[in-house]
């Protein structure tokens, strides 16, 4: 006690140096708790070196002892390695509580048919939460996070119009094998007048106000060998899902930006451009990149987006 008092009351040591004649530096002792905590960290570090990867040695490093992590890698091989957070993460993603729950659901999805999944609210909730990530990683770059696509480029998946069919089987086929959407360019085959007429006729199909005489002339081109549009779009102009040809009688436009046009001239020009230049667009096949379970879940997810058929 008396020693402690001496340290704190007046008799403080100095470092022994004096600057500018009388400028001295006190040599106060470190607080004991601080010092012991510091020794504690040193001890901790030594223990850490023994049990965890720590020191670089040549091109490698010390790996520590008694810290093996065993996990199954992406090829299904069983791997044992020294402690590292990457292996721990892989292990957690395969064996963790969440991973086990996910696997349980995936097994159920695997065994169920589309009708069964669509009729089960719990499986649908799982699909929505799981496939949202798959969709975001793979589909959203073109179709958008909400599946609304870009008019003229990528179809809207959130509406009820399906170019290639909206049944789960159709959607599954589309995702697995991809689609090649093609409409020939009529700029060479038809005269300017004829193209204008067909454009008017196409607009009239979905109830737009157009010049009746022009639309009637356009109908002739559309419904006969002159233009031959009905080959793909059918006489009723409702499209063929085997060709991916658009239904021209509804309110959905995937190439010509009719909804975005503010005047009758702009609408006409938008449709005319498509007839003149044609359409070529491709959706890649995903069977190489996604596993069957992911494709199945994506199918249900896309089906639910807009309310499928």
């Amino acid at each position: 006690m008396s020693e402690e008092k001496a340290k704190t009351q007046g008799a403080v040591q100095t470092t022994g140096h004096a600057w500018d004649g009388d400028l001295q530096e006190f040599n106060n002792p470190l607080p004991a708790w601080w010092l012991w905590a510091f020794y504690g960290t040193v001890l901790f570090a030594v223990v850490y070196w023994i049990f965890y990867p720590a020191w670089p040695v040549g091109t490698g490093y010390t790996t520590g002892v008694m810290n093996d992590v065993t996990f199954v890698d992406s090829d299904g091989k069983k791997m044992t390695t020294h402690w590292n957070t990457r292996a721990l993460l892989l292990k957690e993603m395969q064996e963790g509580e969440e991973a086990q729950l996910t696997r349980k659901y995936l097994d159920r999805i695997d065994k169920a048919g589309f009708a069964e999944i669509l009729g089960d609210a719990e499986l649908m909730a799982f699909t929505r939460s799981y496939a949202k990530g798959v969709f975001g990683d793979n589909c959203a770059p073109c179709h958008g996070a909400g599946g609304t696509g870009v008019i003229g480029l990528f179809p809207n998946l959130a509406d009820d119009d399906w170019l290639w069919g909206g049944t789960p089987q159709d959607i599954h086929q589309t995702i697995t094998h991809g689609r090649y959407g093609f409409m020939p360019a009529f700029g060479e085959a038809l005269s300017d007048q004829q193209i204008d007429d067909v454009a008017d006729y196409v607009l009239s199909l979905s109830g737009h106000d157009v010049d009746g005489a022009a639309a009637a002339r356009g109908q002739q081109v559309f419904q006969t060998e002159v233009g031959g549009c009905y080959y793909c779009h059918t006489h009723a102009a409702t499209g063929l899902k085997s060709q991916g040809s658009a239904n021209l009688t509804d309110r959905i436009w995937t190439i010509a930006d009719v909804p975005g046009a503010r005047t009758a001239e702009a609408r006409h020009a938008a449709v005319r451009r498509v007839i003149e230049k044609g359409v070529q667009r491709r959706m890649p096949a995903w069977s190489d990149r996604l596993d069957p379970a992911q494709i199945k879940l994506l199918t249900v997810y896309v089906h639910e987006l807009g309310g499928g058929q």
Partner: peptide, 16 residues
Amino acid sequence: QVRQPLFVRLSDGRIQ
């Protein structure tokens, strides 16, 4: 409410 997209125009002109 699903906000992305906030609404979708359907083939019969209705809003979803």
